[in-house]
Design a protein around this nucleic acid. Structure first.
Length: 917
RNA sequence: GCCCGGGUGGUGGAACGGUAGACACGGGGGACUUAAAAUCCCCUGCGCAAGCGUGCGGGUUCGAGUCCCGCCCCGGGCACCA
């Protein structure tokens, strides 16, 4: 580098005009020292709770994607503070979970140490970006002082049952115990209660991931399968939370939330409500009744066989001796199949199954129809059994075709669509008119469903019913780095709560669960064994546990006696704005809402929903470069070049255009944008860009990229552009020190007041625009208004009004306030240079003066037949007739009109005149 | 397959039913400089032009990127859930 290049500037030359490094350092220290963003309950002021989805503190540090969401919430936090709200804006660490544990296994460093280091790094990075968190409220889910209360909430769940009549959770002590149960003694009462608790032990097939040696919740399976992990079903005894009791409320309460439609849809899909009927079938030669769920009771006459899930409890009792061997083999085989195999078959429409030899009796016709088992019927949904109507259900149709079972039509399409439909070839799944169905013949589907259900109810053979896809939440994990369950198993089999919380994690020598899934805590014998002979539960909670309620702890993080005080919770909750990634739509957001409702039912919180408004930030994409022929490299993977391998060159073929070229070889490559990830090598490190452009530039660039919800490519030219803007702001406030001077830049000459009428109009329009655009979350356009102001406030050197060469003090003052949410460091610096002794963080937000929002004149647009023809300045006060006269007098317009009388003249005052010929 | 959300310059994106492309990036030209960098100023949807332009085709309206109907494409969600 030469003496004059950016890095090696001689000391005699003055420093860069806008020295972001020293400015940012100064104000970050000021905020910290003065506790500028400290929040306390204050009943005199309205509150505003702005929350980020707190991060998992990974060893890789913060990335620019985090920064986008955090900047948006910080803008809102700073803005609301200036609007007089008492703002709660906290940050913490979601620090339990696999990565720290795996790191510990590899390096021998304790997960707590791993987390401490990583979170210290995150905290440093966040502070460097100037976010206005109240750091006194920082929480860490792995801190025993925190997870004590996670365990406490778990005990609330364990200690409750769902009263379906009252539609709410109630303490288990209030559960009515039938006399005959009570008569059987303590153990029977305990069993009766345990079967109804919101947290219960269940021996059921679970999603087991052998590679990770852990069970997965249904919500987690898809993600792990996508990551290439094998997930198999295997029976295990596990803790499960009864979230299904809340299905209806989780669905109904989505109404009225200000959430993205997309997330509402994911939640609705996940809950998966469907209305239908249960129908009871007798089994020939057995006392047992086989109950099925169907959404199409109108197709009952078309049921030609029955199917049970292989795990259905009746399978063992009804299977005939001649079929037993085949059925058992089939049950065995399905139990071992992996999730992936099942999905593959499902996609291919491939059906397998076995006949039980038993026959069901059709509740209306009395016909005997065969009972099969097949794994396309799921044990966890409905009743785990179906009546198969191959004529009108694609899956039943495929199965019937494979097994050679009869197919009959009981619904006819209306309007003859499709006219040539062949029920033997494909199922007709649409609505139509019932046929071949004695009691409902001729009725349209909706009507037929209703009448059939009523008929079944009258006969005592069925009932209307609603079912949900949502399953109970599998809540235990066979890992070390999670919250221990505060429970112990007594020798007599009764489960009891720990007397004292927290139940802390013991030290262990080996973090890995055994191959068959015995948790590492099971080997901590001293910890596990209690004095009275009972043993502690050795599973731990999933990572979601801590994040299910952290927003509540933020209300009162230092409380040692309670998870939160009533006072703090009633004041701060609900969260007014919650910003985070969409990946949590079916997991974290569903789980938190569930816990919150339980806490609400038990009177611990005051509102049924925790998050009033939700916004998902988009992804920031990183660049990689691909050869034009997409050839593979030596390792057999697609050949990829990283940004530092590549440079931009002028395109020799197309002047003015440029192409990407590999520096070493000169080969042309194409740019490709992907989600940033360490493995792709396309990650932008916030530390580096903050060092070279400053936190204010990085914050502003991320907001200027486009709407918050959109994904957008990270382009360093754009960052440089925003940085240039901040330099222009600096220059607006300063006269540059003479060349060679070591003095800092001096403040531009200032005149009192808001300046000339033109400047005042500009100021008030800017206030108006920035305000409405922050309110609308249109931060990119708010920034553009700030850019226009900066460009136009002071007359450029060449010519123009000399009265506008100075900086109007009042305009400068208010501009600092408008800039502050976006570029808080620079705004504070300029504010203090204007002579203010204190931070601007609590200054009132500027209000536009309506007088200056209206111009005396406006640009009148003249249209002919709706097309733009001319534009002239016209007085705002002009009447419609005057406007038409003005418009008609314009030469160009008069010529086009050519003396013709318009059929109609549309006048929109303040905008346009449209002559319709 | 079903359900959401989108398609606007070379790029990111602006536009209460009222001048499409604000503000930026990129590109071009100029000023300053011995020169360059930096900075500042001007131009920049397409077309030689009349004109044409917001995925395509219709419609409503004096006027449609915006509202309605029918398609196409892209992104996302759900999916053996009876």
């Amino acid at each position: 580098m030469g003496a004059w290049s950016r890095g090696g500037r001689p000391a005699s030359v003055r420093p860069m005009v806008y020295d972001h490094q020293s400015i940012e350092r100064r104000w970050q220290a000021y905020w910290e020292q003065h506790e500028t963003f400290r929040a306390e309950v204050d009943r005199e002021r309205p509150k505003y709770y702005v929350l980020d989805m707190f991060p998992y503190p990974s060893g890789d540090g913060l990335h620019v994607g985090h920064v986008e969401g955090y900047t948006a919430t910080d803008i809102v936090a700073r803005y609301k503070r200036m609007r007089g709200f008492n703002v709660l804006h906290p940050m913490g660490w979601d620090a339990f979970g696999l990565p720290a544990e795996r790191h510990a296994m590899k390096t021998g460093v304790h997960p707590a140490t791993v987390i401490a280091n990583a979170s210290a790094n995150f905290r440093r990075q966040l502070k460097r970006l100037g976010f206005s968190y109240d750091w006194r409220r920082e929480v860490n889910t792995t801190d025993p002082g925190y997870y004590k209360w996670t365990q406490w909430i778990f005990l609330q769940l364990w200690g409750s049952w769902y009263d379906r009549e009252a539609q709410r959770a109630r303490p288990i002590a209030e559960l009515p115990i039938p006399d005959e149960v009570r008569a059987e003694g303590e153990l029977a009462v305990a069993r009766h209660r345990d079967a109804r608790r919101l947290a219960y032990l269940d021996e059921a097939p679970v999603n087991w991931c052998p590679a990770l040696r852990v069970v997965l919740a249904n919500e987690e399976v898809a993600e792990k399968v996508d990551d290439g992990y094998e997930v198999i079903r295997r029976p295990m005894r596990q803790w499960v939370l009864r979230i299904t009791e809340y299905a209806e409320r989780l669905l109904a309460d989505l109404e009225g939330l200000d959430w993205p439609p997309h997330v509402l849809e994911i939640q609705r899909n996940w809950v998966g409500r469907s209305e239908g009927a249960e129908i009871d079938f007798a089994i020939a030669g057995h006392g047992a009744t086989l109950t099925v769920f169907t959404t199409r009771p109108d197709t009952l006459y078309g049921a030609t066989y029955m199917v049970l899930a292989p795990e259905h409890p009746l399978v063992a009792t009804i299977t005939t001796p001649s079929c037993r061997a085949e059925v058992e083999a089939y049950v065995e085989r399905t139990a071992r199949r992996s999730e992936r195999e099942r999905q593959a078959d499902a996609q291919g429409g491939k059906k397998t199954g076995a006949a039980t030899g038993a026959m069901a009796i059709h509740p209306i016709t009395g016909a005997e129809i065969p009972i099969w088992i097949a794994d396309y019927v799921l044990v966890g949904y409905g009743t785990g059994a179906i009546m198969a109507v191959p004529g009108h259900d694609e899956r039943d149709h495929a199965f019937a075709t494979t097994m050679g079972l009869p197919i009959v039509r009981v619904v006819a399409p209306v309007d003859g669509v499709p006219a040539d439909h062949d029920i033997g070839k494909t199922a007709f799944v649409g609505e139509g008119v019932a046929v071949n169905s004695a009691i409902i013949d001729g009725r349209p589907t909706a009507d037929a469903k209703r009448v059939m259900t009523e008929h079944l109810v009258a006969q005592g053979r069925g009932r209307a019913r609603v079912t949900y896809k949502l399953r109970d939440w599998l809540f235990s994990r066979q890992r070390y780095w999670g919250e221990p369950f505060p429970l112990a198993h007594r020798p007599d089999g009764i489960v009891v709560a720990a007397d004292e919380l927290p139940v802390t994690l013991p030290e262990v020598a080996d973090y890995d669960p055994s191959e068959d899934g015995e948790p590492p805590l099971a080997r901590a014998t001293a910890w596990k064994t209690l004095a009275d002979g009972s043993t502690r539960e050795t599973n731990t909670m999933p990572q979601w546990a801590g994040s299910c309620w952290y927003y509540l702890r933020f209300c009162d993080p230092g409380n040692g006696a309670l998870p939160w005080s009533n006072e703090a919770e009633r004041y701060w909750m609900p969260v007014d704005l919650y910003v985070g990634g969409v990946e949590h739509a079916a997991t974290h957001l569903l789980y938190s809402r569930f816990w919150h409702k339980v806490l609400f039912d038990l009177g611990h919180v005051g509102e049924p929903e925790p998050f009033r408004r939700l916004v998902n930030q988009g992804m920031i994409l990183g660049a990689t470069f691909l050869p034009l022929d997409r050839r593979k490299g030596d390792d057999g993977k697609k050949l990829v070049f990283l940004p530092h391998d590549v440079e931009e060159q002028a395109d020799p073929d197309r002047p003015g255009e440029s192409v990407w070229v590999v520096r070493a070889t000169g080969e042309r490559v194409e740019i490709q944008w992907d989600k940033m990830s360490k493995s792709r090598g396309n990650v932008v490190n916030p530390d580096e860009v903050v060092a070279s452009y400053g936190a204010d530039s990085v914050r502003m660039y991320e907001m200027f990229m486009g709407p918050l919800e959109h994904s957008a490519p990270w382009q360093s030219e754009g960052l440089a552009g925003v940085h240039r803007f901040l330099q222009r702001v600096w220059k607006l406030f300063h006269v540059t020190a003479p060349e060679g001077s070591t003095e800092p830049d001096a403040l531009r000459p200032i005149v009192d007041g808001e300046g000339t009428p033109r400047q005042r109009r500009l100021l008030h329009r800017t206030i108006e625009e920035v305000t409405t655009r922050i309110d609308r979350f249109a931060f990119n356009t708010a920034i553009s208004a700030l850019m226009v102001f900066t460009r136009d406030l002071v007359a450029s050197d060449a010519g123009a009004d000399p009265a506008e060469a100075a900086l109007p003090r009042e305009a400068a003052r208010q501009f600092c306030l408008l800039l502050a949410p976006f570029a808080p460091h620079l705004a504070e610096e300029l504010w203090s240079e204007l002579g203010h002794a204190k931070t601007l963080a609590h200054e009132p937000w500027p209000a536009p003066d309506p007088v200056w929002l209206v111009d005396d004149t406006f640009q009148l647009v003249i249209q002919i037949n709706g097309k733009w023809r001319a534009e002239i300045p016209a007085p705002k006060a002009a009447s419609k007739d005057e406007l038409v006269a003005l418009a008609g007098a314009v030469d160009d317009v008069a010529r086009k009109l050519d003396g013709a009388t318009p059929k109609r003249v549309v006048v929109v005052p303040g905008r346009l005149v449209n002559f319709v010929l």
